[in-house]
Nucleic acid binder design. Structure first.
Lengths: 341, 341
DNA sequence: AATCATCCTGCAAACGATTGCAACAGGAAT
DNA sequence: ATTCCTGTTGCAATCGTTTGCAGGATGATT
């Protein structure tokens, strides 16, 4: 205050501050922690000194002593599609909401991106690092089993992904199978009969969407859904989509894309091939990312409520942190009809 | 090994493991840290015991003792446009690359999103938390002065943003003013004369792009650039863009958008208004995000090399961490010509 | 056999904050 | 005057790891 530049750097720890205030370190700790056991005058003196010197208690030390770091780990396993997944719009949006929610609850967020193939015990390593109070895994990728293994011995763990019959780990996610059904039903309602699924069917979530599509095909007596495996990274995807279209020209009149990103790329390719949407081919995406509103024509898609997902993840994690046992949370998908189907 | 389920949880710290191995804690520490002073046989025994019990040294304690946490803080100040900025494609892509680079260098990433208006000393608080070895700030937003204040007293700080004459903090970023010139020159070359700038001119980076556009207008004797202030969040932006278009119908034949995201929204609105691009109105964006390739028609834009930016940020930060003094790093923008100008 | 260097290992003091316990002051109650 | 509270404060152990220093064992050299 005095000079605009209080001599900072002099006070490095709670003991220095205690010396200045003429009290013991313990009292300083209590005062700064806002405990009720400190005399009001003492507290004010300590607080003003702390402010003046820009002092903040060291979180590492505090964490060590309290056995609680107030940090939540968020980890994105890059399974199938190493590159680019981390900048996938959906995951990033979810991450943004998670940051919001965690901040609101007084937690910091430690982000880690791992490649399970190079680092077998990525999850265990993170958990036992001692730096985090709990873990949120974004996307099961192909690591379902690894997660299951760990989940039994470690409570504060919540996963974004698909719910599996009888699984042990607590998961938050959209009902992908139902989403797949909804999307496919829409394609059929729009006149499609020979339907393809655009995307890799390896990852859990995608597999479930694919299964949902198959459900509908079976129920309605349509030909089986044709899987068109595709990577997620835009550069590779475009090319692969083009090949798929060339290979199955005329044999497909409806496409269910695993992701809005893929759907959008597909739309571009369809236009390139002179195929009209939705007249010749109907198209439905998944996620309802902002991009879905801006494609030409605007994309019909299945909406995932990302904000609700983030809230659910944090809420469940906090409850597990508090010792509760929690059920998984399944969010309802919602059809958003625009112009591609 | 033995049973598939080694009794974990028994070994909680280095001392437990020392007891098991029949050595002192110090030796265990040295062995696990890979120091050369330990007998090979002892080391192997300790390592195998550690593996068997899934033990990892506590990073908090280690950090406390070594005064080094191996964590880098990444903070996104949400200045002008509180909501949604964190899920802005550009920042998120940058964040992804940062995660990659930091991981490669053996650092973890702590992500924090702050609202400077609610929390005046966001930067100081983060720095002095004791949890991080250095800070990367993504975007100066309107916090230039605050960052300057802190930068003199804290070395391991690097900022993504715009370089200012005579500034004190180390910054990595594209030459926005040059980018603005390039974009505007392209608009002119494509036949535009009455040019507008779409976006808020408040944030540093945008202000520089705007200034670059003004440079060109002045040099070429064109009418002054018309600023069309717009929020970044898609929902508000669309509406605002529509209003701008309505207000200046026919009076504009070229638009330089501050961002590809805005450009893409603008394109949608233009189509809605039946205005043809690039015949009636030319459009140039900024960033070269993946979306730029998928708009209809594909977007002409100014490319920022995000990967190089991330590498630069991490590289400079590491060097400052090592005690070096570093210059700022200015990346060259690059015009990518597609079909909108 | 004595000396010395070379390896390893153990001891104990840090790092900085928290907290159970004890002690103290001052006032109230007896 | 004694006893008993109540409200504050200090003391010292603790969280788990690291590391400077000293010391012990071993083998080599004279």
């Amino acid at each position: 205050m005095s000079d605009g530049k209080p001599e900072r750097g002099a006070v490095r720890n709670i003991t220095d501050l205690a010396r200045l205030a003429g009290v013991s370190p313990g009292t300083v700790s209590r005062a700064l922690a806002g405990k009720s056991l400190v005399n009001t005058k003492t507290r004010e003196k300590i607080e003003s000194l702390a402010r003046e010197h820009g002092f903040r208690p060291n979180q590492m030390a505090s964490g060590l002593r309290r056995q609680k770091t107030d940090v939540i780990g968020v980890v994105i396993p890059l399974g199938h599609d190493t590159r680019q997944q981390i900048s996938d719009s959906f995951f990033m949006t979810l991450l943004g909401y998670l940051a919001d929610e965690l901040t609101r609850e007084g937690y910091d967020l430690m982000l880690r991106r791992v490649v399970p193939e190079e680092d077998a015990d990525w999850l265990d390593r993170f958990i036992r690092s001692g730096m985090i109070d709990g873990v949120i895994v974004i996307g099961q990728s192909d690591q379902f089993d690894r997660i299951e293994e760990v989940a039994d011995g470690y409570r504060p763990l919540v996963v974004w992904g698909n719910r599996q019959e009888g699984q042990h780990h607590c998961v938050v996610g959209t009902d992908n199978r139902l989403g797949g059904r909804i999307a496919t039903e829409r394609l059929v309602a729009a006149g499609a009969r020979r339907i393809a699924f655009l995307g890799d069917t390896g990852p859990m979530e995608f597999a479930a969407r694919f299964a949902g599509a198959q459900d509908v095909a079976a129920r309605m007596g349509l030909p089986p859904i044709l899987p068109l495996p595709t990577h997620l990274s835009p550069d590779r995807a475009s090319e692969e989509i083009a090949q798929h279209l060339a290979a199955h020209a005329g044999a497909i009149d409806g496409i269910f894309a695993a992701t809005d990103t893929l759907a959008s790329l597909c739309l571009t390719e369809l236009r390139g091939h002179g195929i009209s949407v939705p007249d010749e081919v109907r198209l439905v995406g998944f996620d309802d990312l902002p991009i879905a509103r801006q494609t030409v024509p605007p994309l019909t898609t299945v909406r995932q409520d990302i904000a609700a997902g983030a809230r659910g993840l944090v809420d469940l994690l906090l409850r597990r942190l508090a010792g509760e046992t929690t059920e998984s949370m399944v969010l309802p998908p919602e059809l958003v009809i625009r112009a591609t189907a």
